[in-house]
Amino acid sequence: MNRWRNGEHLLRVALVYGLGVVAFVLLRMALVPRSFGEFGHYRGNAIAETARQRPVFAGHQACNLCHSDVAALKRTGIHAGVHCEACHGPQAAHASDPGSVRPARLATARLCVRCHAANPARPAAFPQIDPRRHNPGLPCETCHPPHNPLQFLSQHS
């Protein structure tokens, strides 16, 4: 009897820990989404939800339909392999309704260095410039038409 009374406080801790476990189990039941683990270690419903999302990229064939002039210019230049939306961003909304959705204007000082700023992780053969030294302060399109960057340079030479 005495022993039981002297160990009673241990039962109290055990009870507190037990309550913690129960609270955790309840919390887990409430918080873990129903479809979790259906296919793997993720929420099964996520697949359907992702599939329901509308595409935001139209693809360059779509642009070429209406902007055949730009497409033709680009095809002749060094940026032929760079798709429209790599620079202009996702434009599915604009392509389906050009009247009400207009692509935002691009700031070349930021856009072009995203691909062309010198970076040791880039293949050495890729054209790279140091933006602090390569004509700083001037927008790139002053000298490089975005759709055919070497157009003027090749005309001069």
Binding site: R5, N6, G7, E8, H9, V13
Partner: peptide, 19 residues
């Protein structure tokens, strides 16, 4: 923090020591 138990008799402390 006492969890409602104020038993600090020698016996209870011995139990604590052991645990």
């Amino acid at each position: 923090l006492t969890l409602g138990s104020s038993n600090i008799s020698a016996g209870a402390l011995a139990v604590d020591e052991r645990a």
